[in-house]
Design a binder for these strands. Structure first.
Lengths: 244, 244
DNA sequence: TTGACGTGGTATTGAAGTGGTATTAATTTT
DNA sequence: AAAATTAATACCACTTCAATACCACGTCAA
C-alpha cells in the first residue's frame, strides 16, 4: 500500500459513517493535488483492501465525490479526477462596486453604527465567543438618488479599528484594515417587507423584497462579516450565469 | 452525554409537566442554532437516557416541535431540523436533480402541456421566428409530497419531439432528444404571490415568493428553454459561493 | 480476433439504530 | 367516583450502513 494512504485511514469507532469519512478525506486529498487532472484514482478494489472496508463503502464515498463533480467514472476503465475547466464561482463585489459597474452613482446613508454584544445567531454564524463585541452597521443604499436596499452588517469589533472611517465601501475599508474578505457564502430568500423596512425603503408594507444574507470569510477562513441586504424587488435583480 | 445538553436538564419537582419543559428548552436550543438545518437531532432514545425520562415523554415534547414545524421526522432514520432547500446558484441543475441530491423524493404534477404560438417576450428571449411554435409546460413541483414551486417552461416545439414523454426531469429529456442545455442565464427576483399562484402553491395571497427566470442555451448557443419558477420562500433558499 | 483480467455497476442481505404505536399504571383534575 | 393527563414499558416497522456475490464493460496481450 502506498504509504501516503495512511492519511486516509478511517476511524471505526467514530459516529460518522465510514463512507462519509472517506469521502471527506478523499476530497481533501484531491484538492491537495494528490492526483493530477485526468489521472486515475486508485481502483475501488485497491481502496477497499488498503483501508479494510467493503467495496460498497468505498463506492458510496466515491458517489459523493461524483455528485460534487470532483471525479469521473469510466465503466471498465477506472475512476479519474475531473479536469477543472474554470472557476464556477461568481465574483464577490460589494453593493457600490456592482452599481458603479452598471453605470449608476452609488450612495450610502448611515442609519446607525452601534457597538454591542452579538445575538446568538451572530455568535454562531460568525463563530464568535459569547462575550466578544460587534459593530452593527445599518445603511440605506441609494442608486442615482433612489433607495434600493437596506443593509445591516455585523462585524467583530476587532476587525474595525474605527467605524467612523468607513466610506461608501465596507470592503475597501476592511482591505485597508488588513481584514480582507476573500470568500463569501450568500443566501437569497424572499420576504415580505416589515413596517420598519417598508418605511425605510419607501414601499408598501408586505411588498416582496429580496433578502440576501452574506457571510464573508478572510484568507484564514474566519467569518468576519455578516450582512443582510434587503433589496427592493422593483430595482434589484440577481443575475447569475450557470454552467453545467 | 454531550456536555451542552446540561442546559436541557429538567426539573422533576416543578409543576409544569416534563414534556412541556423539554419542548420549550428544545425550541430555544433550535432557535439558538444548536443544530444546523438538515442536521439530525439526538435520537429519542439518547434523549431519554441523557435526561432520565421515558421515550413517551421525549416524543411528546418532539410532537410539539413537529406541530410548530421546527423539526421533521423520518421513520427509521431520525429527527431533523426542518430543512430549507438550498439551491446552488453556480451549477446548472434542474429541480429534480437538486432534490434527489438532497435526499428528497421529487415529484411533478402536470398542470398543462399546450402547444401554441409564442408571445413577443418569448420570441425575443428565445430568439424565435414569429411563426415558430412553442410548447408551454406548466408543472407543480413537489418534494416529499409538499408543493415547493410552480414552474412554467417554454420551449421551441422543434426541441420536443414528444412532450408526453417528459418524466420528472426536463433536462434529462432534452439530453435524450439531443438538445442539452449547457449554459443558462438566471435572474432571481422577489414577487408577491398572485391569487393564482397562491392557490396553486397553497400559501396566502401576497406572500413573498422567489421568481427565478432561466434562459437555457444549447452547445451552439441557441436559447432553447425559458423557464419561470415561482418558489415558496419558506422552503427555498438560493445559495452561492463567491470569490473575489 | 479473442479471451483473460482488471475495471466500474448492481442486486441481495442482515445487523443495528431509528421513529411509530398499543397497552398499562400512576397521578391529577373534574 | 369518574375522567383526563402524565409517564413508563414493550413491541413493531422502516432506514441506513456495510458486506458479499455476481454482472457488464474496456483494455491489452497472445
Amino acid at each position: 500500500m502506498d504509504s501516503r494512504w495512511t492519511a486516509l485511514l478511517l476511524d471505526e469507532t467514530a459516529n460518522t459513517p465510514l463512507y462519509l469519512q472517506l469521502a471527506r478525506k478523499l476530497a481533501e486529498a484531491i484538492n491537495a493535488g494528490w492526483w493530477q487532472a485526468d489521472e486515475a484514482l486508485p481502483s475501488e478494489r485497491s481502496l477497499c483492501e488498503a483501508l479494510a472496508i467493503s467495496r460498497v463503502t468505498a463506492r458510496k464515498a466515491l458517489d459523493i465525490l461524483l455528485d460534487q463533480g470532483l471525479i469521473t467514472r469510466r465503466h471498465g476503465s477506472g475512476t479519474f479526477i475531473t479536469p477543472k475547466l474554470e472557476q464556477p464561482l461568481s465574483h464577490l463585489k460589494g453593493f457600490s462596486e456592482v452599481l458603479k459597474a452598471k453605470g449608476f452613482k452609488p450612495e450610502s446613508q448611515w442609519l446607525s453604527r452601534d457597538r454591542g454584544i452579538p445575538s446568538t445567531e451572530e455568535i454562531i454564524k460568525l463563530g464568535l465567543s459569547p462575550n466578544a463585541e460587534v459593530y452593527r452597521l445599518k445603511r440605506k443604499r441609494l442608486a442615482d438618488g433612489v433607495v434600493m436596499a437596506i443593509e445591516i452588517s455585523t462585524l467583530p469589533a476587532s476587525c474595525l479599528p474605527d467605524p467612523q472611517q468607513i466610506g461608501g465601501s465596507l470592503y475597501a475599508y476592511l482591505d485597508s484594515a488588513g481584514h480582507s474578505v476573500v470568500r463569501a457564502l450568500q443566501h437569497v430568500r424572499a420576504i415580505n417587507a416589515t413596517p420598519d423596512l417598508a418605511a425605510l425603503a419607501g414601499i408598501p408594507v408586505g411588498e416582496a423584497m429580496l433578502r440576501v444574507t452574506r457571510i464573508g470569510f478572510d484568507a484564514a477562513n474566519n467569518a468576519i462579516e455578516l450582512t443582510d441586504t434587503y433589496c427592493r424587488n422593483d430595482y434589484y435583480d440577481f443575475v447569475a450565469e450557470l454552467k453545467r
